[in-house]
Simulated scan of single mutants.
Amino acid sequence: MMSQYSESPTLQWVGGPLAGKYQGKDKIQAVWQKFIKAQAPMETAITNVKSTTPLQGTETVKALITFSNVKTKIPVDYTLVYKSVSGHS
């Protein structure tokens, strides 16, 4: 998953004990590891994937990701915003 992030990404985690703004791959990877460790073993299901038409150097991809284990299901509205950097997508 980390390979999908740019060199200077920002993750805005909304809700729950991990809520906050995380900048940089190291901090983002650490928060995902905390989430996975707290929920393991875990499965994921990805549905409702939609993307916007690129406008002014940005494209948005949205999906519903459901993380589940034997105790719970956690539905997450996941949004990725891709921005053009120096003419590159």
Score class of each variant (00 low, 15 high):
24 G>C: 07
3 S>Y: 12
87 G>S: 15
5 Y>M: 13
6 S>P: 11
10 T>A: 15
26 D>G: 04
68 S>E: 05
50 K>L: 11
18 L>T: 04
89 S>L: 13
17 P>K: 12
54 P>M: 08
82 Y>Q: 11
86 S>P: 03
26 D>H: 09
11 L>H: 08
77 D>V: 09
17 P>M: 02
26 D>M: 03
70 V>P: 02
32 W>R: 00
14 V>M: 05
28 I>H: 01
52 T>R: 06
55 L>Q: 13
60 T>H: 07
7 E>C: 07
58 T>F: 07
52 T>Y: 04
19 A>W: 03
42 M>N: 04
25 K>Y: 03
37 K>G: 00
62 K>S: 15
32 W>S: 01
22 Y>C: 04
61 V>N: 03
84 S>Q: 14
12 Q>N: 12
76 V>H: 06
85 V>L: 13
38 A>V: 00
83 K>E: 12
25 K>D: 01
37 K>L: 03
22 Y>K: 01
31 V>Y: 02
72 T>H: 04
14 V>L: 09
43 E>Q: 13
74 I>K: 02
15 G>R: 02
40 A>I: 00
1 M>D: 06
71 K>M: 08
5 Y>T: 12
2 M>L: 13
20 G>C: 03
63 A>V: 04
68 S>L: 01
57 G>Q: 09
54 P>N: 03
45 A>Q: 15
2 M>I: 11
46 I>W: 11
22 Y>G: 06
